[in-house]
Nucleic acid binder design. Structure first.
Lengths: 127, 127
DNA sequence: AGCATGGTGCTAAAAAATTAGCACCGTTGA
DNA sequence: TCAACGGTGCTAATTTTTTAGCACCATGCT
């Protein structure tokens, strides 16, 4: 298995952008980066990522649109798992606590309601 | 600001171990890595991380114990934020949903209760 | 048709990260 | 006391990543 952590710095930056956008052209990545390296550099790195199996591309007219090879859901879970292992001591509770602490100002009552429902669902599923 | 993403692959691996353990000696890191490079390599990289301001060290007898410079809480939040931005479209709801989907089997009723409480607290805090 | 534009592949150079190796210092136990 | 051990700093070599540059192809416009 190719561990996600095995990516270089630039590779990870690029993957993050692709994941954020869902799909991305070289131009998209160029815009997403802050200290943008040359077009050529990004292209090379993306080709490399494709070689490693992290990206694939389809053609949109003359240009390439890159897509992640692993589904959004798989990637989400493995990112979450890694983060919980690293920072949250594997604890869902601590993770949620931090999340809420961070975002409570932005959360609507509706959204909180929906989250309550999610938890009740999990409760049912658990047994 | 030194963005966390600016770390190299090995640097990130090492930081992850330090965060997971809270503090770490070179030996701790050595054991934490799977394809362990030489002692010397790790040491060099940790010194480098110290130079960049990500780690500091205290002396425990003759040996160094490395600690992260940023507090656990700060780091947790910024990791969460980055992950939500990248994979979850900034959505707390989606994040929690994935979390529960992933872990529902491991969650006790007690823990779910406590999470419910957290949400109610957030509700109060929000207004 | 001819040319400008904007994409691609490939190769080689530059920069950064990773590693090993050696010299040195403090502690410990015979 | 004085070797052996386990730690450190530093330097230099290797490997990997990152970058630029050039040649080429398709598209669209004059």
């Amino acid at each position: 298995m190719v561990t996600p952590g095995a990516l270089s710095r630039r590779e990870r930056q690029i993957m993050d952008i692709v994941y954020r956008l869902g799909r991305a052209t070289v131009q998209d990545v160029l815009q997403g980066l802050d200290g943008p390296p040359s077009y050529s550099s990004i292209r090379a790195t993306m080709r490399l990522l494709e070689g490693k199996g992290h990206l694939k591309h389809i053609s949109d007219g003359p240009k390439y649109v890159y897509l992640p090879t692993r589904t959004r859901n798989i990637v989400r879970k493995s990112a979450l798992r890694h983060m919980m292992d690293t920072f949250f001591n594997h604890s869902v509770e601590t993770t949620v606590a931090t999340l809420l602490d961070m975002k409570s100002k932005d959360l609507t009552d509706d959204e909180l309601d929906r989250i309550q429902v999610l938890i009740n669902d999990a409760r049912k599923r658990g047994r």
